[in-house]
Amino acid sequence: MNSDAPVAVEERLFSLVLALVSTEIGLTKAEILGAVQGYRQKFVPGGDNSSLERQFERDKDDIRELGVPLETLESPTDPGNNQALRYRIAKGDYDLPSDITFTPEETTLLNLAAMVWREGSLSGESRRALLKLRSLGTEGSKQLIGYAPRIRTRDAAFAPLTDALDRGVLVRFSYLKPGEQNARERTVAPTAVVQHQGRWYLQAIDQKADAPRTFLLSRIVGPVVATRAATPRPASPTAGDDALAELDQIWRTHVARVSVRPGTDAESRLGKRRGSIRHPDGTISLHYTDLALLADDLAAFGPEAVVISPPTLVDAVRERLLAVVASHSDAVDAV
């Protein structure tokens, strides 16, 4: 092979995976840098290879991120010596278990499940999951054509929070509760990220209160900072389902009554919300999870929807409408 020609990144990564899968005892960093395609071309025997070593560190992270179990083994005779560490990929942990296969119907469903994430922070993961799925050779069946479902992850906090969840570390962020003037900083151990009725929530253990809390992602202000501290205890395997069940429970027990103008968009759409009841007098009962979010939705309908109860919702909607008037009134058009 021509050692002068530049080696593409994917060729270097592919060669590294092949080399580490085929070794039983593992390879040391020096062995890898000196021999594996893509590194060996830049390796200087006995010289300074620090930038190549950093390259190798990044490559390891990239490969692990794909779900490839790249192991680090301490030398039994020389523990603690970084240079004596060995790297390998155990084939049994790399291979998809042979009894895992998918029928054409399941393949179709998984294709659609991946398509749901076609934009936003999980699009790369779903694209790569699809490639692995296709490696099994099964073609999807033809059902479910005509659906283009999509989950949006519009909240900037989604990516850093799911990332912290995967890595099991504490995060810090500022959270603005409705009705409060200033955001407060929270340090929490994430246990699940859940979507309920179109909104993203974080379920986490608040470190100060040492108790579970639910946060709405859209109320996180500014950046989410991942700390280096590991979460004190592993998340309960049912944390996400528990959070959803709790949100459902809140939704069931909270009901607002709204009067809608006949023949309006509010009448069509509020009447078709999940669980809403139209009464003979033209009012509608609506379930809700979060009063402030419902107040936003109802304020948008303007004069088409008037809140009857609860009184706190009446106040919240009025407050919003007054704010809209204020933010759209100024000297310029007050002629």
Binding site: V17, L18, V21, E65, L66, G67, V68, P69, K91, D93, Y94, D95, L96, S98, L122, E125, S126, R128, A129, K132, S135, L136, T162, D166
Partner: peptide, 11 residues
């Protein structure tokens, strides 16, 4: 290698 790779946790 001859088998399909596993999915990552995120995938």
């Amino acid at each position: 290698i001859d088998d399909s790779p596993r999915f990552s946790a995120r995938e």
